[in-house]
Design a protein around this nucleic acid. Structure first.
Lengths: 135, 135
DNA sequence: TATTGAGTCTGGAGTTCCTACAGGGTGTAC
DNA sequence: GTACACCCTGTAGGAACTCCAGACTCAATA
Protein backbone atom coordinates (compact mmCIF):
# COMPACT_ATOMS: atom_id res chain seq x y z
CA UNK A 1 0.00 0.00 0.00
CA UNK A 2 3.01 2.25 -0.45
CA UNK A 3 2.83 2.88 -4.22
CA UNK A 4 1.14 6.23 -4.76
CA UNK A 5 -1.50 4.87 -7.16
CA UNK A 6 -2.49 1.91 -5.00
CA UNK A 7 -4.52 2.53 -1.88
CA UNK A 8 -6.82 1.03 0.75
CA UNK A 9 -10.59 1.00 0.97
CA UNK A 10 -10.50 3.86 3.48
CA UNK A 11 -8.71 6.11 1.00
CA UNK A 12 -11.07 5.03 -1.78
CA UNK A 13 -14.00 5.88 0.46
CA UNK A 14 -12.61 9.33 1.13
CA UNK A 15 -11.83 10.08 -2.51
CA UNK A 16 -15.14 8.83 -3.90
CA UNK A 17 -17.45 9.97 -1.13
CA UNK A 18 -18.83 6.46 -0.76
CA UNK A 19 -19.07 4.69 2.60
CA UNK A 20 -16.64 1.83 3.20
CA UNK A 21 -19.50 -0.55 3.94
CA UNK A 22 -21.25 0.55 0.77
CA UNK A 23 -18.12 -0.11 -1.29
CA UNK A 24 -17.99 -3.67 0.01
CA UNK A 25 -21.70 -3.97 -0.70
CA UNK A 26 -21.21 -2.84 -4.33
CA UNK A 27 -18.48 -5.43 -4.68
CA UNK A 28 -20.85 -8.15 -3.47
CA UNK A 29 -23.56 -6.79 -5.81
CA UNK A 30 -21.17 -7.05 -8.76
CA UNK A 31 -20.91 -3.33 -9.59
CA UNK A 32 -17.22 -3.31 -8.74
CA UNK A 33 -14.77 -6.00 -9.71
CA UNK A 34 -13.14 -7.93 -6.89
CA UNK A 35 -10.01 -5.93 -6.15
CA UNK A 36 -6.47 -7.21 -5.67
CA UNK A 37 -5.50 -7.98 -2.08
CA UNK A 38 -2.48 -7.26 0.07
CA UNK A 39 -0.64 -10.26 1.60
CA UNK A 40 -2.67 -9.66 4.75
CA UNK A 41 -6.00 -9.61 2.89
CA UNK A 42 -6.58 -5.85 2.56
CA UNK A 43 -8.38 -4.69 -0.58
CA UNK A 44 -6.16 -2.69 -2.95
CA UNK A 45 -7.59 -0.02 -5.27
CA UNK A 46 -6.48 2.36 -8.04
CA UNK A 47 -7.57 5.69 -9.46
CA UNK A 48 -9.90 4.03 -11.96
CA UNK A 49 -11.94 2.72 -9.02
CA UNK A 50 -12.40 6.26 -7.71
CA UNK A 51 -13.86 7.27 -11.07
CA UNK A 52 -16.21 4.33 -11.24
CA UNK A 53 -17.39 4.70 -7.67
CA UNK A 54 -17.94 8.46 -7.96
CA UNK A 55 -20.07 7.78 -11.00
CA UNK A 56 -22.17 5.25 -9.14
CA UNK A 57 -22.69 7.67 -6.27
CA UNK A 58 -23.81 10.50 -8.53
CA UNK A 59 -26.10 8.25 -10.50
CA UNK A 60 -27.69 6.98 -7.26
CA UNK A 61 -28.25 10.60 -6.15
CA UNK A 62 -30.04 11.17 -9.42
CA UNK A 63 -32.49 8.39 -8.71
CA UNK A 64 -31.09 5.59 -10.88
CA UNK A 65 -31.42 2.07 -9.49
CA UNK A 66 -28.40 -0.20 -9.21
CA UNK A 67 -29.77 -2.17 -12.14
CA UNK A 68 -29.93 0.93 -14.32
CA UNK A 69 -26.46 1.88 -13.22
CA UNK A 70 -25.27 -1.58 -14.19
CA UNK A 71 -26.55 -0.83 -17.70
CA UNK A 72 -24.83 2.55 -17.81
CA UNK A 73 -21.59 0.98 -16.61
CA UNK A 74 -21.88 -1.65 -19.33
CA UNK A 75 -22.20 1.16 -21.86
CA UNK A 76 -19.12 2.82 -20.46
CA UNK A 77 -17.25 -0.49 -20.38
CA UNK A 78 -18.02 -0.97 -24.07
CA UNK A 79 -19.49 -4.35 -23.28
CA UNK A 80 -21.84 -4.32 -26.21
CA UNK A 81 -20.46 -5.44 -29.53
CA UNK A 82 -23.48 -4.15 -31.39
CA UNK A 83 -23.94 -0.51 -32.18
CA UNK A 84 -27.67 -1.05 -32.33
CA UNK A 85 -27.68 -2.19 -28.67
CA UNK A 86 -25.62 0.81 -27.52
CA UNK A 87 -27.99 3.02 -29.42
CA UNK A 88 -31.11 1.48 -27.86
CA UNK A 89 -29.87 1.46 -24.27
CA UNK A 90 -28.44 4.94 -24.67
CA UNK A 91 -31.70 6.24 -26.06
CA UNK A 92 -33.77 4.71 -23.28
CA UNK A 93 -31.66 6.39 -20.66
CA UNK A 94 -31.49 9.62 -22.61
CA UNK A 95 -35.28 9.82 -22.60
CA UNK A 96 -35.34 9.18 -18.87
CA UNK A 97 -32.63 11.74 -18.20
CA UNK A 98 -34.47 14.39 -20.21
CA UNK A 99 -37.70 13.74 -18.33
CA UNK A 100 -35.85 14.16 -15.05
CA UNK A 101 -34.30 17.40 -16.19
CA UNK A 102 -37.70 18.71 -17.18
CA UNK A 103 -39.19 17.86 -13.78
CA UNK A 104 -36.27 19.36 -11.91
CA UNK A 105 -36.49 22.55 -13.96
CA UNK A 106 -40.10 22.91 -12.93
CA UNK A 107 -39.22 22.40 -9.29
CA UNK A 108 -36.38 24.86 -9.62
CA UNK A 109 -38.71 27.52 -11.00
CA UNK A 110 -41.18 27.14 -8.15
CA UNK A 111 -38.56 27.02 -5.41
CA UNK A 112 -36.71 30.04 -6.81
CA UNK A 113 -39.93 32.05 -6.91
CA UNK A 114 -40.75 31.11 -3.33
CA UNK A 115 -37.30 31.89 -2.02
CA UNK A 116 -37.33 35.24 -3.78
CA UNK A 117 -40.78 36.17 -2.49
CA UNK A 118 -39.68 35.24 1.02
CA UNK A 119 -36.59 37.37 0.74
CA UNK A 120 -38.96 40.30 0.12
CA UNK A 121 -40.87 39.44 3.27
CA UNK A 122 -43.89 38.20 1.34
CA UNK A 123 -45.22 34.82 2.39
CA UNK A 124 -45.58 32.98 -0.90
CA UNK A 125 -48.22 30.50 -1.99
CA UNK A 126 -46.79 27.27 -3.23
CA UNK A 127 -47.84 25.59 -6.48
CA UNK A 128 -45.16 22.92 -6.05
CA UNK A 129 -47.48 19.93 -6.05
CA UNK A 130 -49.46 20.97 -9.09
CA UNK A 131 -46.44 21.58 -11.25
CA UNK A 132 -45.11 18.05 -10.92
CA UNK A 133 -48.49 16.37 -10.69
CA UNK A 134 -49.45 17.09 -14.28
CA UNK A 135 -48.36 14.44 -16.74
CA UNK B 1 -67.88 5.14 -4.17
CA UNK B 2 -70.41 6.34 -6.71
CA UNK B 3 -69.75 10.10 -6.65
CA UNK B 4 -67.44 10.93 -9.58
CA UNK B 5 -64.85 12.68 -7.45
CA UNK B 6 -64.61 9.95 -4.80
CA UNK B 7 -62.80 6.74 -5.65
CA UNK B 8 -61.06 3.65 -4.31
CA UNK B 9 -57.39 2.95 -3.74
CA UNK B 10 -57.22 0.97 -6.97
CA UNK B 11 -58.35 3.97 -9.00
CA UNK B 12 -55.99 6.23 -7.10
CA UNK B 13 -53.17 3.81 -7.87
CA UNK B 14 -54.01 3.88 -11.56
CA UNK B 15 -54.30 7.67 -11.76
CA UNK B 16 -51.13 8.41 -9.80
CA UNK B 17 -48.95 5.58 -11.04
CA UNK B 18 -48.22 4.50 -7.46
CA UNK B 19 -48.57 0.90 -6.31
CA UNK B 20 -51.52 0.15 -3.99
CA UNK B 21 -49.19 -1.28 -1.35
CA UNK B 22 -47.00 1.79 -1.60
CA UNK B 23 -49.99 4.08 -1.09
CA UNK B 24 -50.83 2.25 2.13
CA UNK B 25 -47.18 2.44 3.11
CA UNK B 26 -47.15 6.24 2.58
CA UNK B 27 -50.24 6.51 4.74
CA UNK B 28 -48.50 4.61 7.55
CA UNK B 29 -45.41 6.78 7.05
CA UNK B 30 -47.51 9.93 7.44
CA UNK B 31 -47.03 11.37 3.94
CA UNK B 32 -50.72 10.99 3.20
CA UNK B 33 -53.49 11.82 5.62
CA UNK B 34 -55.70 8.94 6.74
CA UNK B 35 -58.50 8.91 4.18
CA UNK B 36 -62.22 8.67 4.79
CA UNK B 37 -63.64 5.14 4.76
CA UNK B 38 -66.68 3.52 3.20
CA UNK B 39 -69.15 1.75 5.55
CA UNK B 40 -67.33 -1.48 4.73
CA UNK B 41 -63.90 -0.05 5.55
CA UNK B 42 -62.62 0.79 2.04
CA UNK B 43 -60.38 3.85 1.74
CA UNK B 44 -62.00 6.76 -0.13
CA UNK B 45 -59.92 9.29 -2.08
CA UNK B 46 -60.36 12.51 -4.07
CA UNK B 47 -58.59 14.29 -6.88
CA UNK B 48 -56.36 16.19 -4.47
CA UNK B 49 -54.84 12.86 -3.42
CA UNK B 50 -53.89 12.08 -7.02
CA UNK B 51 -52.00 15.37 -7.17
CA UNK B 52 -50.17 14.76 -3.93
CA UNK B 53 -49.28 11.17 -4.76
CA UNK B 54 -48.10 12.02 -8.26
CA UNK B 55 -45.84 14.62 -6.75
CA UNK B 56 -44.38 12.12 -4.32
CA UNK B 57 -43.74 9.63 -7.11
CA UNK B 58 -41.98 12.20 -9.28
CA UNK B 59 -39.89 13.43 -6.40
CA UNK B 60 -38.86 9.85 -5.53
CA UNK B 61 -37.86 9.28 -9.17
CA UNK B 62 -35.68 12.35 -8.87
CA UNK B 63 -33.81 10.86 -5.94
CA UNK B 64 -35.39 12.70 -3.02
CA UNK B 65 -35.81 10.74 0.23
CA UNK B 66 -39.17 10.48 1.94
CA UNK B 67 -37.87 12.86 4.58
CA UNK B 68 -36.96 15.48 1.97
CA UNK B 69 -40.33 14.99 0.34
CA UNK B 70 -41.99 15.54 3.70
CA UNK B 71 -40.25 18.92 3.81
CA UNK B 72 -41.33 19.81 0.30
CA UNK B 73 -44.91 18.79 1.11
CA UNK B 74 -44.79 20.98 4.21
CA UNK B 75 -43.72 23.88 2.00
CA UNK B 76 -46.62 23.19 -0.34
CA UNK B 77 -49.02 22.80 2.57
CA UNK B 78 -47.94 26.22 3.86
CA UNK B 79 -47.14 24.65 7.20
CA UNK B 80 -44.50 27.18 8.09
CA UNK B 81 -45.66 30.44 9.61
CA UNK B 82 -42.25 32.05 9.29
CA UNK B 83 -41.00 33.43 6.03
CA UNK B 84 -37.46 32.85 7.18
CA UNK B 85 -38.10 29.12 7.54
CA UNK B 86 -39.73 28.84 4.12
CA UNK B 87 -36.78 30.72 2.70
CA UNK B 88 -34.21 28.44 4.31
CA UNK B 89 -35.85 25.17 3.42
CA UNK B 90 -36.61 26.38 -0.09
CA UNK B 91 -33.03 27.48 -0.58
CA UNK B 92 -31.60 24.18 0.65
CA UNK B 93 -33.69 22.24 -1.82
CA UNK B 94 -33.06 24.74 -4.58
CA UNK B 95 -29.33 24.17 -4.24
CA UNK B 96 -29.82 20.41 -4.36
CA UNK B 97 -32.14 20.66 -7.36
CA UNK B 98 -29.64 22.78 -9.28
CA UNK B 99 -26.83 20.31 -8.56
CA UNK B 100 -28.98 17.49 -9.87
CA UNK B 101 -29.82 19.41 -13.01
CA UNK B 102 -26.12 20.07 -13.63
CA UNK B 103 -25.25 16.36 -13.30
CA UNK B 104 -28.13 15.25 -15.47
CA UNK B 105 -27.21 17.69 -18.22
CA UNK B 106 -23.73 16.22 -18.30
CA UNK B 107 -25.16 12.75 -18.65
CA UNK B 108 -27.53 14.00 -21.30
CA UNK B 109 -24.66 15.39 -23.35
CA UNK B 110 -22.71 12.14 -23.26
CA UNK B 111 -25.68 9.90 -23.96
CA UNK B 112 -26.84 12.10 -26.84
CA UNK B 113 -23.37 11.96 -28.39
CA UNK B 114 -23.22 8.19 -28.06
CA UNK B 115 -26.68 7.65 -29.48
CA UNK B 116 -25.90 9.94 -32.39
CA UNK B 117 -22.58 8.25 -33.14
CA UNK B 118 -24.26 4.86 -33.01
CA UNK B 119 -26.96 5.99 -35.38
CA UNK B 120 -24.14 6.69 -37.83
CA UNK B 121 -22.88 3.15 -37.36
CA UNK B 122 -19.74 4.30 -35.57
CA UNK B 123 -19.08 2.53 -32.30
CA UNK B 124 -18.25 5.38 -29.94
CA UNK B 125 -15.92 5.36 -26.99
CA UNK B 126 -17.72 6.30 -23.84
CA UNK B 127 -16.57 9.06 -21.50
CA UNK B 128 -19.68 8.57 -19.34
CA UNK B 129 -17.84 7.68 -16.16
CA UNK B 130 -15.36 10.52 -16.35
CA UNK B 131 -17.98 13.19 -16.83
CA UNK B 132 -19.81 12.46 -13.61
CA UNK B 133 -16.77 11.40 -11.65
CA UNK B 134 -15.25 14.86 -11.60
CA UNK B 135 -16.40 17.01 -8.70
C1' DT C 1 -82.18 -11.29 -4.28
C1' DA C 2 -78.61 -14.58 -4.18
C1' DT C 3 -74.40 -15.26 -6.19
C1' DT C 4 -70.13 -14.50 -8.23
C1' DG C 5 -65.89 -12.44 -9.01
C1' DA C 6 -63.03 -8.53 -8.83
C1' DG C 7 -61.45 -5.41 -5.52
C1' DT C 8 -60.03 -4.28 -0.77
C1' DC C 9 -58.80 -5.14 4.12
C1' DT C 10 -54.98 -6.25 7.86
C1' DG C 11 -50.86 -8.32 9.33
C1' DG C 12 -46.66 -10.25 8.39
C1' DA C 13 -42.81 -11.77 5.65
C1' DG C 14 -39.52 -10.80 1.77
C1' DT C 15 -36.47 -7.55 -1.27
C1' DT C 16 -33.30 -3.81 -2.32
C1' DC C 17 -29.94 -0.81 -0.89
C1' DC C 18 -27.53 0.35 2.28
C1' DT C 19 -25.45 1.07 7.42
C1' DA C 20 -23.76 -0.37 11.94
C1' DC C 21 -21.77 -3.35 15.01
C1' DA C 22 -18.84 -7.44 17.04
C1' DG C 23 -14.90 -9.90 17.32
C1' DG C 24 -10.76 -10.59 15.35
C1' DG C 25 -6.57 -9.80 12.25
C1' DT C 26 -3.06 -6.23 9.85
C1' DG C 27 0.40 -2.42 9.40
C1' DT C 28 3.37 0.90 10.97
C1' DA C 29 5.36 4.15 14.17
C1' DC C 30 7.47 4.73 18.11
C1' DG D 1 7.19 -5.32 20.79
C1' DT D 2 3.40 -2.94 21.67
C1' DA D 3 0.03 0.62 20.80
C1' DC D 4 -3.29 2.33 17.75
C1' DA D 5 -5.56 3.14 13.59
C1' DC D 6 -7.13 0.55 10.02
C1' DC D 7 -9.16 -3.49 7.72
C1' DC D 8 -11.38 -8.20 7.58
C1' DT D 9 -15.88 -11.31 7.62
C1' DG D 10 -20.33 -12.13 9.14
C1' DT D 11 -24.53 -10.75 10.88
C1' DA D 12 -28.15 -7.77 12.23
C1' DG D 13 -30.66 -3.49 11.59
C1' DG D 14 -33.19 0.39 8.95
C1' DA D 15 -35.55 2.74 4.90
C1' DA D 16 -38.55 2.20 1.32
C1' DC D 17 -40.95 -0.57 -0.70
C1' DT D 18 -43.37 -5.28 -2.51
C1' DC D 19 -45.81 -9.56 -2.07
C1' DC D 20 -48.81 -12.85 -0.01
C1' DA D 21 -52.60 -15.25 2.87
C1' DG D 22 -56.95 -15.37 4.50
C1' DA D 23 -60.95 -12.80 5.22
C1' DC D 24 -64.24 -9.20 3.96
C1' DT D 25 -66.82 -5.76 0.53
C1' DC D 26 -69.13 -4.21 -3.46
C1' DA D 27 -71.34 -4.06 -7.96
C1' DA D 28 -73.09 -6.60 -11.58
C1' DT D 29 -75.63 -10.20 -13.28
C1' DA D 30 -78.69 -14.30 -13.47
Amino acid sequence: MSAPDIFSIGVLSERSGVNIETIRYYERAGLLQKPARSPGGYRLYRTVDVTRLSFIRRARDLGFSLDEIRHLLDLADQKFRSCRRVHDIGLTHLTEVRAKIRDLRRMEGILATMVKACANGTMPTCPLLEVLASA
